[in-house]
Design a protein around this nucleic acid. Structure first.
Lengths: 306, 306
DNA sequence: GTCGATTACGTATTACGTAACAATT
DNA sequence: AATTGTTACGTAATACGTAATCGAC
């Protein structure tokens, strides 16, 4: 218990007033630029205004933070400390705005992750119809595991998987099947076949779009790497298909929806790996929220089954 | 890289304006008290003023944070998040003021730690004369080690030690000697003696003031615990000395400065432990700052040596 | 004279209170 | 009727800009 003699009577009118953000902004700017003139220019205010503000903040702190002499103002040691802390306050203010904005946006956004591109084509319009006013973000990820993790971490609200997810906290519904075809020029030796296997295609160079999700894994596993002509650019892919006679992959789903360039023959691939069954999943607790989506999709399945 | 469809165009005029502290204070108060009326009362402002402020903060955030229905306002989920972050901003603001105030005060305060009370009596007036405008805080600590640590940690700017401190970063100067006396009533068997030892006093009950620093350790070591009548209260000690004829400890320094109740006889104690040599020390780097103090104290020593 | 800061004064903004009103309970 | 929030309007506080002034290099 220290005993205190001769305490300076600096404890007069100490205001319990907080110091406003605009003052701290100006103060931090002064600390950064060194002179009132420079700082005032940067702040787009007049020099006298800044001068007054600095007086005010000093008065509100109740402590000397400036060293004034020779018509120069500078921070003293206490002032430098104050500037550090002031910067933290501004940071906290910015962080608040940032966090609130991001959170609000996340509240108005449905993120959907899919293992393949086709289901997205189908489901995004469904979401737009059923979740009115929501922004929709989609992403293609080639591993179910990452999708499931993303779902649990609430990075995704909906995911399209390759395998049925069997977790207590995840609601998972079968969605649709997709069968892989290879699209050949009429002149191609295999074009007459009723079906082919990956083995039949082992000497054929085939165009593959980069954004096909898990299908890329299937291709890499079943085809020689050198025969895969991977196109990152979607437009370039389209042009290549039009301009060349190179084979490319297609699927029953895509063809049903009218995607079939002229003068090509689509031949189904019989390998079991050339068939995918998609599942759509969300967190169990969100099941109600997306029920209309699941219902719309179930209707879709029934149609498929006919 | 998520692709974003159908982004709601909520990105209009978004101001880069920070949100002022007074708004955050009002907002946090509303979050705390639940209704505008309650919060307005607590804030000592009118309800309409608060209502407008809440509108303003919502507009500045550019995001809905309130749920309004049935002439009730409440926070929505985003609002609760915002309130949490707003509280942090206020905390940062308060912390800034607190830190700056404390630092400033520490700049204007000399803390002195001493192993015994007498040197403080001497040195505090010296400090008041030489360090004009500074507040002086003093503390009695009975272990040199803690004093030295406190000096290095800048808890103390000056310390009075029992032993010379031999550290590179500490400047240490011999200060003054103090010899312990026992003050006895004239009727006491030992009162006639030219000197006594602690051993002579082993059957004597003696008053000891609690705030004597290291002297207490000396007493405890050399006297039976039961014979020490320890007084925590300084006034009570004075009264006991006046009213009773109990022996108590005194010293040459104290007596030279006129501290000697009537009708007592002071007998010196000859044990080596009954003599103390004080040293005054500061950090080497502060030597210049306190040079006037050290000089004043050296004059003191010279006087003593004559 | 230039640069940097302050003082003085007028103005525009704005945060506030009062009063009236609207909507539920 | 009582409680709670909003709208309308006038006022007081205040943050700002312009112009003038001071001081040092």
């Amino acid at each position: 218990m220290p005993i205190c003699y001769n305490g300076i009577n600096d404890s007069y009118t100490m205001g319990d007033t907080m110091i406003e953000i605009y003052l701290l902004e100006q103060f931090v700017a002064f600390a950064k630029y060194g002179t009132l003139l420079r700082a005032a220019e940067e702040l787009h205010i007049s020099q006298p205004a800044l001068s007054r503000s600095m007086k005010k903040i000093e008065e509100q702190l109740g402590v000397q933070i400036f060293h004034r002499q020779n018509s120069k103002v500078s921070l003293n040691e206490t002032g430098r400390l104050a500037a550090d802390y002031a910067a933290r306050v501004l940071q906290a203010d910015r962080e608040m705005i940032e966090m609130v904005t991001v959170f609000d946006r996340s509240q108005r956004t449905i993120s959907i992750g899919s293992c393949a591109p086709f289901p997205l084509q189908e489901i995004i319009p469904v979401l737009q119809d059923n979740m009115i006013g929501m922004a929709i973000t989609s992403e293609i990820i080639d591993e179910d595991e990452r999708l499931v993790t993303g779902l649990k971490n609430r990075i995704y609200q909906l995911v399209i998987l390759n395998e049925k997810a069997e977790h207590d906290d995840i609601f998972c519904q079968r969605y649709i099947d997709e069968k892989l075809y290879v699209t050949l020029p009429q002149s191609h030796p295999l074009a007459e076949r009723a079906s082919v296997s990956f083995d039949d295609l082992k000497d054929t160079r085939i165009l593959v779009s980069a954004g096909v999700g898990f299908w890329m894994n299937v291709c890499r596993k079943n085809m020689p790497e050198d025969n895969l002509l991977i196109q990152k650019n979607h437009d370039a892919m389209g042009e290549l298909i039009e301009a060349s006679s190179l084979p490319f992959f297609n699927s029953d789903c895509m063809m049903e929806r009218g995607y079939m360039p002229p003068d090509r023959i689509a031949v189904p691939i019989i390998d079991s790996e050339a068939k995918a069954t998609y599942y759509i999943a969300c967190l169990s607790e969100d099941k109600r929220k997306y029920s209309s989506v699941f219902n719309a999709v179930r209707g879709n399945i029934i149609r498929e089954n006919f």
